[in-house]
Design a binder for these strands. Structure first.
Lengths: 145, 145
DNA sequence: TAGCAACAATTAACATGTTAAGGAAATATC
DNA sequence: GATATTTCCTTAACATGTTAATTGTTGCTA
């Protein structure tokens, strides 16, 4: 009985895409006013939360692949939201840090973003919301559980 | 207390991305052998399940935006997996249909894909798996619930 | 120390996501 | 029935996802 795929209407990958679209749509609307993309926002948020870090760690925490991060970091640097500095001990490596200008952008938009997130929490209810996060985490191979 | 965003480690959008990556990774590996992409696979599956349909319906059921579908349909046509025909009654519209060659590809890979899906169902357990699909559906504005 | 494996980051190439603009055909409005 | 509006689809432009190849550094080791 495992030879049959579920109907596309009940497909896990498609359900994940649709849910993501539903969640990101209002967030994208909010970000459109700022001129940065969803991924750029994610990078700035991680830098804001954890501070200066090397590229590998940043890529991991932002859930971005290296090539994407290379481009995004260049864009953010041009916009003045981050600075990049080489590691003198190991000149292959690089550190990235958020600038005051970048931090200001995060600070200004966080209330609105938090409000959007609160809306989803209300839609599902606190309990189901947490349950959803737990279930999603169990699908993530990166989570060392 | 709604002015604070959750830690990026507990962010719903990021959790959705990571879960999607976890689910798609083995599927992408499977598809790599076929030479088609994840989205092309999705389109063929929808066409296989529901038969010939117009582009608008196909885009909706595949969760793809129109511009993406235009390109994907062109690629699939060049590869001989689908055919495109104009609607004589309304020459703006177009119908897309899977070819026998496309159907063969789906048939050959479905057992493997089903096996991968079954793995995730086993990981979460039948009950949590269904619960997850329900929760995801509630985040999808397109679902008329 | 010359050579090579391992590593960090970039670049390249192609496909898709996203928004905006354009083109062709049908429909509405007057 | 001419014009405007709407609808379906395509094209354009830019950012990202994905895999593979490349460059520059470091470390190892024979």
């Amino acid at each position: 009985m495992t030879k049959q795929l579920p109907s596309t209407a009940r497909s896990l990958p498609i359900a994940l895409i649709r849910a993501r679209e539903g969640v990101m749509s209002p967030i994208r609307d909010m970000l459109a006013e700022t001129g940065i993309t969803e991924q750029q926002w994610r990078v700035l948020r991680v830098l804001s939360e954890f501070g200066r870090m090397d590229t590998k760690t940043l890529a991991d925490r932002s859930s971005l692949l290296f090539p994407s991060l290379t481009r995004i970091a260049a864009t953010l640097r041009e916009k003045g939201f981050v600075t990049q500095t080489r590691d003198d001990k190991d000149r292959r490596r690089q550190f990235i840090e958020i600038t005051p200008k970048g931090q200001t952008l995060i600070d200004e938009r966080t209330p609105h973003a938090a409000q959007i997130v609160a809306g989803f929490k209300e839609t599902l209810g606190e309990q189901d919301y947490e349950k959803l996060l737990d279930l999603l985490e169990r699908l993530d191979p990166g989570a060392q559980s």
